[in-house]
């Protein structure tokens, strides 16, 4: 059975760091009234490539599978099907021990810094642990931990404090420092600013941007906030109900969205400008995103789509090129600007 979302946009090149093909995750659904549980297809045939030093934004609404995708990439979740290749090595089925050399290049930043940092450990311990696992001496690890704090804009004298002694923004800086400890080449950041106060988000966005440039990191930035993603990413992939519905250069996707869902999503984002808000034409979608336990037939967006025709109800569209710049959309009636 193939759920291929069609081959990914960019062909494999020397600079391809991460290559994801046909990635699928199903979870057991709940049993209801003795009927056998149906499986929930949270991620359904996702494919993309990420080049070294590149930033890809993965956007979509709750339940679209963006976080599940991110977790599979770093092997926090086991894919049901498909492959993840890092640096030309298939890591999908490596044991945790075999994975260890790759781990240092593949790190993650989480949404809630307080939940992802051990409250009983000092910052020194939190930052040293990945280094100790990689075989560094305790002394060298502590020295590196101090460097890392400085790198993320914290006072290295605070090494012996605990996470709760830091504000939310500072705690997220520690989470970022931990991800950087082993000198990774790719960081998966899952909603790294959405738990922070508005006035603090910009600090973290700027920090990530600076680090990404300075260290030449590849970044997979998972977020529901389209403005933040536009800010930080080179390319963007829009997910809906477990599938990528549009992917491409951010200017192509933001300035001339091809998929009706991308268009609606962008038009729904409120602008902090009352005059612009009054001028704007909004596409207000009907209904809620459907449940991945009972996906609609054909194109899963068709029940909410203003353009839906018969073919949309019956036949699932594959990702296909729309316009130039390597942009692809999965729609029978894409807008080619």
């Amino acid at each position: 059975m193939s759920h291929s979302n069609a081959p990914a946009p960019t062909p494999l090149t020397d600079s391809t760091l991460l290559s994801v093909r046909d990635l699928t995750k199903t979870f057991p659904g709940r049993r209801r009234l003795g009927r056998p549980a149906s499986r929930v297809r949270a991620v359904d045939g996702v494919a993309f490539d990420l080049a070294a030093g590149e930033t890809l934004g993965l956007v979509g609404e709750s339940g679209c599978g963006k976080s599940t995708t991110g977790r599979m990439l770093v092997r926090l979740l086991e894919p049901t099907a498909g492959t993840v290749a890092f640096d030309n090595q298939d890591i999908t089925h490596l044991s945790q021990r075999q994975l260890r050399p790759t781990r240092r290049h593949l790190q993650m930043i989480f949404q809630d810094p307080y939940a992802s940092l051990n409250p009983r450990q000092t910052v020194s311990r939190i930052l040293s642990e990945p280094l100790l696992i990689q075989g560094k001496s305790a002394r060298a690890a502590r020295h590196r931990a101090a460097e890392l704090l400085e790198l993320v804009g914290l006072n290295p004298e605070h090494l012996d404090r605990h996470p709760y002694q830091f504000s939310g923004g500072q705690a997220q800086r520690i989470g970022i420092a931990r991800a950087l400890a082993t000198g990774p080449r790719l960081i998966v950041a899952d909603e790294p600013v959405s738990a922070l106060d508005v006035s603090v988000q910009a600090q973290i966005v700027n920090l990530l941007e600076r680090l990404q440039h300075e260290l030449g990191l590849a970044l997979l930035f998972i977020a529901h906030d389209l403005s933040v993603v536009k800010r930080i990413c080179d390319r963007v992939a829009v997910m809906y109900l477990g599938r990528i519905v549009e992917i491409g250069d951010k200017h192509a996707v933001y300035d001339a969205p091809a998929h009706p869902y991308t268009q609606a999503l962008l038009s729904a984002v409120p602008l902090p400008d009352p005059a612009a808000e009054r001028r704007r034409e909004r596409i207000v979608l009907l209904g809620d995103p459907p449940s991945p336990a009972a996906p609609p037939s054909g194109c899963s967006f068709h029940p909410r789509c203003p353009k839906a025709q018969d073919i949309c109800r019956n036949q699932r569209p594959a990702l296909a090129a729309v316009g130039r710049e390597g942009r692809q959309a999965a729609c029978h009636f894409p807008t080619d600007h």
Binding site: S167, G168, G169, Q170, D197, V198, S199, V200, Q201, A202, Q203, V205, N206, E209, R210, L226, S227, V228, K230, R231, Y254, L266, V269, L271, P272, D273, A276
Partner: peptide, 25 residues
């Protein structure tokens, strides 16, 4: 002013770094 300057906007050019408010609430 600081709040308005520090939020990324969909309709903004995105080359300059965001202006930030130092510290936290």
């Amino acid at each position: 002013r600081g709040l308005l300057d520090s939020i990324p906007r969909l309709d903004d050019p995105d080359d300059a770094p965001l202006r930030t408010i130092a510290g936290s609430p």
